[in-house]
Amino acid sequence: MDFIELMKELLTLENLLDFLHEYESFGPISGFLLVVLEAFLPFLPLIVIVMANAAAFGLWLGFLISWAGSVFGACVVYYLVQKVKRYHWIQKWLKKEKIRRTMSWVERHGFGPIFLMLCFPFTPSFLINVVAGLSKIKFFQFFLALLAGKMVMIFTISYIGYDLLSFIRAPIKTAVVIFIMLILWFIGKKVELHLQVSGEK
């Protein structure tokens, strides 16, 4: 079993709740740091981490912890990519035709596609942060899209995590949520595909 699969197996909702309770003396810091860590290690299960925060700290505090951690982590990734892209080999890579067209498309459309992509829990937010950092999008524009998109996505997951038992006990409620999540996944994939096609064109 490789490292990524091992981490996914260990970071279950039950294990994360045990971890948060074990380190409850640190308050919300442990939950915040888990979400920040996910910004750098995208294979970590963000959905499970957000649900654990909501279950451990309550709906609103858990949501705020996850939202703040996710936004902070994304901003750090954006900042680091902005610094790294100054290197000659990165600039050379960005001049490739396909990459240049994709960046140009993202820069022209700015807020809209970044906001939409970040609304959906199944889109690769790490990749979005990197693309935004490599592009010429202003930080303020990226930050607004990040705040709004992450707020929608994380509140939805937090709500489910906070009231998880009711979803388990009510099959219809669970089915509706699964259906909505599937729709969000489908829309997210469509938006992602549209961005890829538009970038190539």
Rank of each mutant, 00 (worst) to 15 (best):
G69K: 06
V48L: 14
A74D: 10
T123E: 07
M1N: 03
I183C: 12
C75M: 11
L127E: 08
S25Q: 01
P28Y: 00
L17D: 12
F155A: 05
L144D: 01
F111L: 14
V197F: 11
I99N: 09
V35D: 05
E14A: 03
R101K: 15
M7A: 15
L64Q: 00
L11T: 11
G69S: 08
L11D: 13
I168P: 09
D18C: 11
I128C: 00
D2A: 10
L16R: 03
L34S: 04
E5F: 03
K150F: 06
L116G: 13
F26L: 13
P42Q: 13
K173A: 08
L195Q: 04
L94F: 05
K85W: 02
V50A: 11
L10D: 02
A132T: 02
W105P: 14
I99M: 09
L11S: 11
V191W: 10
F143G: 08
Q82V: 02
K83C: 09
E192I: 11
A170H: 06
T174R: 03
F155K: 00
K173L: 13
M151Y: 01
I90V: 15
H109W: 12
N53S: 03
F167K: 03
L165M: 00
W105Q: 14
L193Q: 12
F19E: 12
T123C: 01
G62Q: 08
Y162W: 14
I137Y: 07
V106S: 09
G31R: 10
Y78P: 01
P121I: 03
L64T: 07
V35Y: 04
L118C: 07
L144R: 03
V81G: 01
N15W: 05
L144A: 14
M153Q: 07
W93Y: 13
L184Q: 13
W185A: 11
C119K: 02
K189A: 11
L13M: 09
A132K: 07
Q141I: 09
T174C: 06
G112C: 09
M153S: 07
A56W: 03
A132Y: 03
P113E: 05
K150C: 04
